[in-house]
Amino acid sequence: MLPDYSTYTDSALFAVLMSGASSAELAFGEIYKRHSRRLYLYCTKITGNKQDAHDIFQEAWIKFHSVATSTQTCVENVAGYIFRIARNLYLNKKNERQIDIVTYEDVYSSSKANQLENMEQLEVVEMLKRALDLLDDDYREAYVLHELDDMPYEEISAITGSTVAALKNRVWRARKHIRTYLAPLLSSS
């Protein structure tokens, strides 16, 4: 009878995956089930487009599996480990200019245009998306992980390597930037 992996901790599942046991697929599936949504959200928001998000998401899981089945060291924070892989992939892609960067002018012009139209909720959502795109990468990453993913600063710190104080500062500034950007909408609503 197969063990109930839903009761295992992440690190225990990682150990099963490391061992190369016949039930490694189930362990990988359980890890995937636990963290795929969060990672997918992170990839989607951090890249700003689905195609890049899909590429990074897929590569991250493949790399995670490759490392987990070949390493001799157990990982305690599995979620942070996967996020770190995805983040590095994102940074690599960005450095290789494989990801389109949204310019301030692009967003500003569409923002001004949108302000003239009815401020329906869908537009607000679209404006928010653009506001997120407008943020610096560091700010956006911290904001997405903390505000959308409810990830504690300490965990974000483990992923990004930044200090908690720096992350707080980024999130706070990101909030202010977004409020400023959405000010016309907020005042009208």
């Binding site: 928010l128 909030r175 907020l186």
Partner: peptide, 8 residues
């Protein structure tokens, strides 16, 4: 903003 961001 927070509610709208999460709602989106």
């Amino acid at each position: 903003v927070r509610n709208t961001v999460r709602a989106s």
